[in-house]
Amino acid sequence: MYKLSAVLTGVLVAVMVTFNGLLANQIGDYLAVLIVHIVGLITISFILIFGRRKINVNRDIPVYLFGAGAIGVVLVLFNNICFKYLGISITLALGLFGQSIASGIIDHFGLLGMDTHTFRKEKLVGLILIFAGIIVMVVY
């Protein structure tokens, strides 16, 4: 059941990037990012209010932990632009490749406070397959 939910979460990501991309095509890239964030903020506010959860941001939180919000803006913007020119499947396939590479590097060096997991050379086979798949997608 949870495995099916994981697949559905992936489907939702694809639907989300599509909606955002279509919105950007209609009203422009920057304004679309603004609206996506307004709608998202309203949604999360409702969840916090109905869950009666309190926010306590007074503790010592290093500034870089607030950076994810800014990254999110760049992310939605990039996705919108790529959606327009590449379509959704190539955009997401390249994204998955980027995720695989980035997580491999971060794990290997134990960056950003993560545990170190040395990169296994066998995994190059998988990365090459993914890369080949992307080339097939883009070219044909």
């Binding site: 990254i71 992310l75 998955l96 980027g98 995720q99």
Partner: peptide
């Protein structure tokens, strides 16, 4: 974008 997803 994919790299940024992991970072965030």
């Amino acid at each position: 974008s994919g790299c940024l997803v992991i970072l965030s």
